[in-house]
């Protein structure tokens, strides 16, 4: 594997981590009693790992990274469980979205490589599942289904907007 790919991913982990805990954790997007918007952009580095990354390594990275996020959110295990789930589902979604001729050895899940449509469906599917899982685990009971549902929808929309905006601004190659 090209060392620049590794560095790019490491930097991405670091930057999204910092962005999540410094910015997203602190901004308060509640409007009156409407408190359903939470920015969750931190899963992106996991999603944007190269296609040929070993699946087990993805899981382990997701767990460690999720626990680090949890350390700052003061909710041990909640983000980690959601992120491990997302990492697991990622391999299924990748197979589901596989182009007719299969993936190339040097494919990365970026807009540049796979196109905007592919990228949008890939990230939105996983982010939606991630949000749903995260808010479910946070509530920890489907008694709060309305709460989970609203949180998932609105957090997904805003987080997705931020992620796409970042992609369009920074245009990552890997």
């Amino acid at each position: 594997m090209n060392s620049s790919v590794v560095y790019a991913n490491l930097w991405r982990f670091l930057l999204y981590f910092l962005f999540q805990i410094i910015v997203c954790r602190r901004v308060d997007l509640s409007i009156g009693t409407f408190d359903y918007i939470h920015l969750l952009v931190y899963p992106l580095p996991i999603l944007m790992l190269p296609m040929k990354t070993p699946r087990a390594l993805t899981l382990i990275l997701a767990f460690v990274y999720g626990m680090l996020i949890d350390g700052f959110y003061n909710s041990p295990g909640v983000h980690a469980s959601a992120l491990v789930f997302t990492a697991y589902i990622k391999s299924i979604i990748l197979r589901f979205l596989e182009p007719f001729e299969g993936y190339n050895a040097d494919d990365y899940p970026t807009i540049q490589k796979m196109g905007l449509g592919w990228f949008m469906s890939f990230v939105s599917l996983l982010l939606l599942l991630h949000c749903f899982f995260y808010f479910s685990v946070e509530a920890f009971s489907f008694v709060y289904f309305f709460h989970i549902f609203m949180n998932t929808i609105f957090s997904f929309i805003t987080s997705m907007a931020v992620i796409v905006l970042f992609q369009l601004i920074f245009r990552p190659k890997y």
Partner: peptide, 14 residues
């Protein structure tokens, strides 16, 4: 199995 083990660990921590 790794996935299940990790989720189990996560929920244990939660």
């Amino acid at each position: 199995l790794l996935f299940l083990a990790m989720e189990f660990l996560c929920f244990y921590i939660i």
